[in-house]
Simulated assay, not measured.
Amino acid sequence: MSPDDDGYGNDSGRSNDGYSTLGGTRQTRTRLPDSQGGDGYGPRRPARNSRSLFTVLGVVILLLAAIAFANMGGGGGDNGGDGARGSDAKRPGSAPTAATGTKPVTGKNGSIPSGYAHDEQGAQSAAANYSVALGSADMFDKSRRRAIASAVYAPAVASARQGALDKVYSGEDFLANIGLNADGTAPAGQTFISRSNPVGTKVEKFNGDTASVSVWYSALFGLAGEGSKNPVSESWFTNTFALTWTNGDWKVTDFTQKDGPAPVGRDQAASPAGEMADAVEQFGGFTYAR
């Protein structure tokens, strides 16, 4: 949902088939019933209790050791690159997604969290929350869109971004292609859904007052309702935000979007349109923080 030059392309950064999903299949293994003899399979051998007991104990011990290791923070500190976790421990940009214990968001700018910490954690939190705001259905309402742009973008670029966003999101062809009315509202009897759900963040660069942060997220997009020609589908994207520390907070100066990484879809049946619309209205979003 971003223009080609400004992160919000007319095709929303999606593939030509913006509403396609990946289908997945699962193979099942059938266990034959225990034989009572005479059917060619023979009876199942009795379980070896002592061996099973040692196996269970071994697994429990390994789990306890792993938990203790994690609670100690890896034990090896900066020198743990060749320890139990191997080379993955120092993989550039990677970090655990567990809470750090520091509260990075202290306020709100309208409906958007603000007041991020002036460090890498704060930059990641800002990028995640800004991806949610920029991917929301509010971007299709003129007044809300301008409020989002003012809250998310640095003052030096906010005005230019507002004009570019207005041009894209008010385009009749763009709105018609996604099934919305000329004013950006959904047709009668249908619910428009646009929601970004961050999965993780990664610091690409950090230089004190500037940062580059990538956000990997899934996106729900489409119209829920009987007769919808654009049913709600899921897509996966990665946005990379250029951030600058401005007036005591992180602000966006630019961002790019690319497809994926996308997982293989499972063989779950799609929910009815009414159930999907109810879910989005009843389940609120999160404030994201590291």
Score class of each variant (00 low, 15 high):
156 A>K: 15
123 A>Q: 05
82 D>T: 12
131 S>V: 13
89 A>Y: 13
135 G>C: 00
132 V>I: 08
102 T>K: 15
91 R>H: 10
104 P>W: 07
101 G>L: 10
96 P>N: 13
74 G>P: 04
123 A>D: 05
80 G>V: 02
103 K>M: 05
78 D>M: 10
111 S>Q: 08
167 K>Y: 02
140 F>H: 09
138 D>R: 02
139 M>A: 05
116 Y>C: 06
74 G>L: 07
106 T>P: 01
117 A>E: 11
83 G>W: 12
130 Y>L: 07
117 A>N: 15
125 S>V: 04
128 A>D: 01
151 A>L: 03
142 K>M: 00
73 G>R: 03
134 L>K: 00
84 A>Y: 06
118 H>Q: 15
139 M>S: 06
124 Q>L: 09
140 F>E: 02
129 N>W: 00
163 G>L: 07
137 A>F: 01
83 G>K: 10
124 Q>I: 03
140 F>K: 09
125 S>F: 04
135 G>R: 05
138 D>K: 06
158 A>P: 08
109 N>R: 13
85 R>T: 13
93 G>E: 07
133 A>D: 01
144 R>H: 06
81 G>N: 12
112 I>C: 05
159 S>I: 04
144 R>L: 05
87 S>K: 11
104 P>T: 11
79 N>F: 15
144 R>V: 01
107 G>Y: 05
166 D>V: 02
151 A>P: 07
91 R>P: 01
80 G>N: 11
112 I>F: 00
95 A>L: 11
168 V>M: 13
100 T>G: 03
83 G>I: 03
146 R>D: 09
91 R>L: 12
115 G>P: 03
136 S>P: 04
87 S>Y: 07
105 V>Y: 02
156 A>M: 06
95 A>T: 14
101 G>A: 10
141 D>F: 02
137 A>M: 00
164 A>S: 15
98 A>R: 14
118 H>T: 06
89 A>R: 14
163 G>D: 11
118 H>D: 12
170 S>N: 14
82 D>N: 14
84 A>E: 03
85 R>Y: 12
92 P>A: 08
89 A>D: 10
102 T>D: 11
103 K>P: 06
94 S>D: 13
148 I>V: 15
100 T>R: 10
154 A>H: 10
80 G>H: 04
119 D>E: 05
106 T>V: 12
100 T>Q: 09
136 S>V: 06
155 P>R: 06
124 Q>A: 14
90 K>F: 12
95 A>Y: 09
81 G>P: 01
73 G>Q: 04
132 V>W: 03
77 G>V: 06
81 G>S: 12
156 A>D: 15
162 Q>P: 01
141 D>R: 03
160 A>R: 14
124 Q>C: 12
108 K>N: 10
97 T>C: 08
168 V>T: 14
149 A>Q: 11
90 K>A: 09
102 T>W: 05
87 S>N: 13
160 A>K: 15
80 G>E: 07
87 S>D: 13
156 A>V: 08
129 N>R: 01
158 A>L: 04
153 Y>V: 08
165 L>Q: 08
111 S>C: 00
116 Y>V: 09
150 S>H: 08
155 P>N: 03
140 F>I: 07
132 V>T: 11
81 G>T: 13
134 L>G: 01
160 A>I: 07
88 D>I: 15
155 P>F: 00
146 R>M: 05
82 D>E: 10
125 S>R: 02
83 G>F: 09
94 S>F: 09
158 A>H: 08
105 V>D: 02
127 A>K: 03
153 Y>G: 07
101 G>E: 11
163 G>K: 14
75 G>A: 10
